[in-house]
Amino acid sequence: MHPAPSIVLFTVLTGLGLGQMAWLGLGLGPDEGLFRWLACALALALAGAGGLASTGHLGRRENAWRAFSQWRSSWLSREACLMVAAMAFFGLYAAIWCLGGVRLWGLGLAAAALALATIQATAMIYAQLKAVPRWSVTPTPALFLVTGLTGGLLANGAVSGLVGAGLAGAAVPGWWAALALAVAAGVAVWWQTSAAGAGRASQGSSVESATGLGFMGRVRSFEAPHTGSNYLLREMAFEVGRKRAFELRRLGAVLGYLAPLVLSLAALGLGGWLMVLALVAHVMGMLALRWLFFAEAEHVQALYYGKR
């Protein structure tokens, strides 16, 4: 599938911001004045920026508001509704916390639940597509949830590290981050293992089933319907860059999990500012892995073209 930069950015950034909201809503993070402001602002900015990025690939942006209407059937619509609800609840929670100095736990819990539900809805947009087995038969929701929560923890850690570097007294959540990263790496390996066996053939799809001609013999695309390219091939038969998938995945794993793990542990001794580096490395790694999430996914319709 075509890894549109707007979608890669959108899924990574919103996951990060929503993960932050979940932890902050649950009451994590110090009550330190500057931390409150910075962490809440970052969470809202990330989620908001991601939301804006997601409109980048729309053909008719003026109709985007209609995406709030089909929550009964569509995961994309549910995601849009949940996202706004999560940002509204969290915004209120953050305002009361920052301005009034109290954390309303009920409101925070609701914001956290909505944030997690939004990540789940994002994942379901992909996980619901039977036509892309690599997304639908793998634990995609678990991958997105754990990625978002880990990123959120790192982002909160980075803010607290930054604040702690300037102002004394902020806790460095290095242990937490290291633990989360270890779990996240485990889930990523789980997803990857299941994705390795989730080709189109695993769901019984082949050019024979696509054409129904298998009863006659081996089927091969002899001639495509058109000599040029088209929307279907550009969107759903993305073959470029898969060659370097292995190298890119290794880079993603090192930057996304290993480097931040080492850095968060180092932050325990060397100072919280290292958490900022951990966050930057993690986000870069996640962008690489999310790019692969799209680029490596094969759509069954490409079978008609004899392509992957």
Binding site: R66, V132, M236
Partner: peptide, 25 residues
């Protein structure tokens, strides 16, 4: 009312939907 998100084309296993390159629907 279509916003041109393209998700329906992804959902169709047959490649039966194509985005209009000019109108964006």
């Amino acid at each position: 009312t279509c916003m041109g998100c393209g998700l329906c084309a992804w959902a169709c296993p047959y490649g039966a939907r194509e985005m209009d390159p000019v109108a964006g629907v």
